[in-house]
């Protein structure tokens, strides 16, 4: 598998680390335990297009948001994940 890093260009899978689903947003500071529980544990098991976090640790150290089809492994977009998980800021 190959990922086109928006900063480094097309690179091989071995340079990246997978984290998981990029859909959940970190709840605000005052969120309930249930909301945080959902954020930490609940994931959709998507057959088709899904967005996920990849870390370019073997390159620019950017966190990326990769849109990938779980049926074909086809990657349709890669973008910097800046702020992707910050629904509302904590603290």
């Amino acid at each position: 598998m190959r990922i086109v890093c928006p900063f480094c260009g097309e690179r091989e899978l071995g340079e990246f680390t997978y984290l998981g689903d990029a859909k959940p947003m970190r709840p605000v500071a005052g969120a309930s335990e249930d909301e945080v529980f959902d954020y930490v544990y609940l994931r959709d098991n998507v057959a088709g297009e899904t967005s996920e976090y990849w870390y370019h640790g073997g390159g620019c150290r950017a966190w990326l948001k990769v849109t990938r089809n779980t049926l074909t492994h086809e990657i349709s977009s890669v973008e910097a994940a800046a702020g992707a998980g910050a629904a509302k800021v904590g603290a």
Partner: peptide, 15 residues
């Protein structure tokens, strides 16, 4: 930890 802190910095707390 470096990876985790980068995640916090880039993805969770970009401000």
């Amino acid at each position: 930890v470096m990876q985790h802190l980068e995640f916090c910095r880039q993805v969770l707390f970009p401000e």
